[in-house]
């Protein structure tokens, strides 16, 4: 029987083989979306737990990698929402100490502005604005429509420009 068919039937050995094949990709994807390597190990475990839990719903004729990436995107989104809630609850004012190097200070302010993006916009901004992925590919990976990607990229750009302004970043 095919590896994916065995996985769909809940075969743990087949699942381990798939884990060995895809865990690096999932881990790397989670780090890219969250920019938080310290949380990536826990998130990768969470992703594979979700994958195993949903084994019976997987269509073995489709790509396991793409499915895993979509589940990882949702887990990353949950993590970003949680982190944002915790940040807001702790209400620690961001460090605004100017750095001795102007360029480094600018980068820090840009990074701070980026962190204020709502999670849904942040993930699209990461892929569309920073990594310059094609909209079609982002839509397929995140499981949303192309027009949703376009709208979120537009809103993210607007949000960033406002946040840059609040950070005192001028043209």
């Amino acid at each position: 029987m095919d590896l994916l068919d065995r996985f769909v039937r809940g075969d743990l050995e087949a699942f381990e083989l798939l884990f060995r094949q895809f865990h690096r990709e999932v881990y790397g994807w989670v780090v890219r979306l969250t920019r938080d390597p310290s949380a990536a190990e826990d998130l990768t475990v969470e992703v594979f737990w979700r994958i195993y839990r949903a084994h019976a719903r997987f269509d073995a004729t489709r790509s396991f990698g793409a499915w895993a990436r979509r589940i990882a995107s949702n887990a990353a989104l949950d993590h970003l929402r949680r982190a944002r809630r915790e940040r807001e609850a702790s209400s620690v004012p961001p460090d605004r100490t100017p750095d001795s190097s102007g360029r480094r200070d600018l980068h820090l302010r840009v990074e701070r502005a980026f962190l204020t993006l709502p999670p849904k916009l942040r993930i699209v901004a990461e892929l569309a604005l920073i990594e310059n992925w094609p909209q079609e590919e982002i839509a397929n990976t995140l499981g949303i429509s192309r027009s949703a990607v376009k709208a979120r990229a537009f809103r993210a750009t607007k949000h960033l420009k406002d946040a840059f302004e609040r950070e005192g970043i001028e043209p």
Binding site: G28, V31, H107, E111, I130, E131
Partner: peptide
């Protein structure tokens, strides 16, 4: 500005 400050992450 965004691309200058936020380089894409790549991990092993």
């Amino acid at each position: 500005l965004l691309r200058g400050a936020m380089t894409a992450r790549s991990v092993d």
